[in-house]
């Protein structure tokens, strides 16, 4: 098999997520009363980018065959912290942004340390640490409110030349700066290797502990970016428990739609971004088709179940029953 064909096959899940998104978004804008206008795109981008950041964070961890159930809490913590510190003089705003991102990174590193050095199961460790992060968010902002520097907020959430949504550009820039170098680095390969075969990765001398730590730290950092963006959209912070759990669960749904395997070792953050955008577009489709909003949760659930069940087609190709059970 030549190089291009191999790469295409490797990126099949990501490419199909992109294709599905383009089709759904075309359907959405064609039926939207305002059509394919800059404002429609901007609103859609702003909603999608929030989940996309959290989903990319979740992707790093899931690639190592782990799971981070605290991403929603870190997202909310960053949102609340931003509503306190990202205000004042330009210098203070810059420091505030750095503090928010640093906090997210620290939360992620703490999760990573619990998993790597504490040897705890990621699912329970992050449930517990998520409770702590949410408690901190609640302490920062017992009542919704706060203030965010509006110049920066408007710049990040507005439109650039030709009506390009600024939030999408921010996402694109972060992906180019982080994901592309990550994917090509040794540690990036180690993250994939840990997820697909930990023992082999260990025996090959890959830095598996550092890879795990990095994955969890990135999850915290990206979730904090999402929380910061939320603060820019709402100009305030709110410690909402339901938002925290919704974003955690939606991030899992988004990455699965985007072709990331929950068993680890397969998928890409680009797929996760498009998975998040698909998830949000499905929501919006309901509105343009004038369905009763009461149908929304049922429709989303059915779409999610349908999407994940599609993968079961592989069962028809099994030649040996034992392959059902994995390793």
């Amino acid at each position: 098999m030549n190089d291009l064909a191999f790469r295409l096959r490797d990126a099949r899940a990501t490419l199909s997520a992109v294709a599905v998104f383009v089709a759904l978004f075309a359907l959405y804008t064609l039926n939207h009363p305002a059509g394919f206008s800059a404002n429609v795109v901007q609103t859609a981008a702003n909603k999608g980018v929030l989940l996309a950041f959290v989903a990319v964070g979740q992707t790093f961890v899931v690639l190592t065959a782990g799971i981070d159930l605290s991403v929603g809490a870190v997202f909310i913590l960053a949102n609340c912290l931003a509503s306190v510190v990202v205000t004042g003089s330009p210098g203070a705003v810059a420091l505030g942004v750095a503090a928010v991102l640093g906090t997210g990174l620290a939360c992620g590193l703490a999760n990573g340390a619990l998993v790597v050095y504490g040897r705890l199961q990621p699912i329970v460790a992050t449930i517990a640490s998520g409770a702590i992060y949410f408690g901190l968010a609640l302490a920062l902002r017992p009542e919704p409110g706060g203030d965010v520097d509006s110049t920066l907020a408007d710049a990040v959430t507005g439109q650039l030349a030709f009506g390009v949504p600024a939030s999408a550009v921010v996402l694109l820039a972060v992906m180019l700066l982080v994901w592309v170098p990550f994917r090509r680095s040794l540690i990036g390969r180690a993250v994939y290797a840990v997820g697909s075969a930990e023992a082999s990765a260990y025996l090959s001398g890959l830095p598996i502990r550092r890879a795990r730590l990095l994955a969890y730290a990135s999850a915290g950092l990206f979730s904090a970016m999402g929380g910061l963006m939320l603060a820019f959209f709402t100009y305030s912070g709110e410690a909402s428990a339901s938002n925290a759990s919704t974003y955690t669960l939606d991030s899992i749904a988004a990455i699965v739609i985007g072709g990331v395997s929950l068993f680890g070792g397969a998928g890409s953050a680009v797929g996760a971004v498009f998975g998040a955008l698909i998830f949000r577009t499905i929501n919006d489709l309901l509105f343009v088709f004038d369905l009763d909003p009461l149908w929304q949760p049922l429709f989303l659930g059915l779409v999610l179940l349908g999407a994940v069940s599609l993968g079961s087609a592989r069962l028809l190709r099994l030649k040996n029953r034992l392959e059902l059970f994995g390793s």
């Binding site: 669960l249 949760p297 049922l298 429709f299 059915l302 069940s309």
Partner: peptide
Amino acid sequence: LRVPSMIFTLGVDAVAQGL
């Protein structure tokens, strides 16, 4: 269907909520 339980039960939760 051999779907990972973490995602399938999440979907069923959404369907139950929807109903």
